[in-house]
Design a protein around this nucleic acid. Sequence first.
DNA 1: TGGTGGGGAGTGGTCTGAGGACTTAGGAGG
DNA 2: CCTCCTAAGTCCTCAGACCACTCCCCACCA
Lengths: 230, 230
Amino acid sequence: MAATDTALAGLRQMIASGALGPGAKFPPEPELCERLGVSRSSLREAVRSLAALGVIESRHGSGTYVSALDPAEIISRFSLSVQLIPLEGVLQLLEVRRVLEAHATAAAAARQDPDLAPLLDKILEQLEATTDAAEIQRLDAEFHDAICAAGGNPTVTALTAVIRGRGGHYRIFEPGSEFDAIKQTSDRGHRAILAAIAHRDPAAAATAASAHIAQTELWLRALRPEPQPD
Amino acid sequence: MAATDTALAGLRQMIASGALGPGAKFPPEPELCERLGVSRSSLREAVRSLAALGVIESRHGSGTYVSALDPAEIISRFSLSVQLIPLEGVLQLLEVRRVLEAHATAAAAARQDPDLAPLLDKILEQLEATTDAAEIQRLDAEFHDAICAAGGNPTVTALTAVIRGRGGHYRIFEPGSEFDAIKQTSDRGHRAILAAIAHRDPAAAATAASAHIAQTELWLRALRPEPQPD
DNA sequence: TGGTGGGGAGTGGTCTGAGGACTTAGGAGG
DNA sequence: CCTCCTAAGTCCTCAGACCACTCCCCACCA
C-alpha cells in the first residue's frame, strides 16, 4: 500500500475505532510518523486529505485534532467542489434541493414557530425592494435558510445551502430583457411559501417550495447562463 | 495568505475560470510550483485536498488531471467522512435519505420500467431466504440501489448510497432476541415497496419507502447499537 | 494577593534536494 | 504488422533544516 494511503488508513482507523473521539487531539507529527511508518511529508498529505473532508483540523502551533464530526459542518466542506460542477450536474443537485427544501418547508409550517413568519416577512420586504443582483442573492439565501433552519434538521439546512450557493453562481437575475418577469415570479413564489407557513399548512408549504425551486430549474435549463468565476 | 491556501486557490481558479475543463491535464508539478509561487510540498498538499474532494485526480507516472466533475462521483467521496459520523448525526442523515429515497421510489414507480419489478422480486427472494448479516446488508443495498437508479437521478442514487453505507455499520441485524421480528418487518417493508412499484403507484411507493426507512430510524434510536469499525 | 508581561518549550507550516516508481510513447527487431 | 524494450516524463517518498504560531509557566509589579 502506498505511504500516504497507509497514513490515511491509520488516521481514519484511530477515529473509527473510538480511540479518538470528536475534538480529541492527535499525537505530534513526529510520533505519528513513527507509529504509522511513513515520512512526515506523507503523513501531512494524509492529514490534508482528511482535513479537506472535514474530519480533521490542524491548528498551527497547537496540534492536530479530530473535528466535531458534525454532519452539517462536513457537508459544508463540499461547497468547494460543488461550486465547480457544470450545469448538467447542477440540475441534478437542484432536484435534490427541491425535494429536501419542500420537506423542510413543510416541517417549518408544522412547527408553528411564532417568530418565523414575521422574520420572513421582513426579509421579503427588503427583497422585493431591491434590484441589485448580489443583494437579491443574499436575501434569497437568508429567506430559504431561515425556513430550513426552522425545519429542525441542520443537516438538511447545510445540504440545501451548499446547493443554493452553487445555483447563485448562475446569475439569473442579471439585468436583461427577462429581468422584470423573472423577479416578479420569484417574489410571488416567496410570498406563496410565506403564506402557507403563516397558515400552518405543511402540504401547501411543501407544494409552494417545490414549485418555487422547480421554477428556478426551468430558468436554468432555458437560459443556460454562463457561471461567474470567483 | 498561507502557501498551501495560495496553491489551493490557484488550482481551484484554473478550473473555475474554465481554463481547464473536466478531464484536462495540469502542467507538471515544477511548473505549477513556479506559476503559483509555492514549494512542491505545499503544492502537493493542495493537490491532495482537491483530490480528497473529488475535484482532481493524480495518476502516478502520468500526470495530474481535473476529474469528470460528476456530482455522483464527488458525493461518493463523502463516504469516508460520513462513515465516521456518530449516531446523532446519522439520524439526521437518515431523514435526508428517507425524503430522497421516497422521492426516487415514486419516480421509479412512475417510470414503468418493465424490467424493474422482476429484478426487485429476484433480489427479495434471495434476501428473504438468508439470515446472514453481511448478506442481508448486501442485498438490501442492491434492492434500494436498483430502485434509486430507476428514479433517473444519479446524484440522488449516490447520496442515498453513501448514507445507507453508514447505516450499515450499525448492525441492526445481528442475531439477537429481536432478530426475527426485525427481519420480518423489514421483509414486509420491501414487499410493500415492490408492490407499489409493480402497481405503478408513485404515491404508494413514496409512502412505503418513507415508512420503511422511518422504521430503520426507530430501530436505531431504540437499540442505539455500537458501530462496527472497519 | 492578584493581575500582567515575557520567555521558552512544543507543535504545525514551509522550503530544498535527492532518489525511486510508474506510465507512456516511440523505435528496434521479429 | 505486431511485439518487446528502451528512455523520457511525471508523480511518489524520504530526509533535514528552519520558520511561525500557540500555549503554559514564572517572574515581576501593583
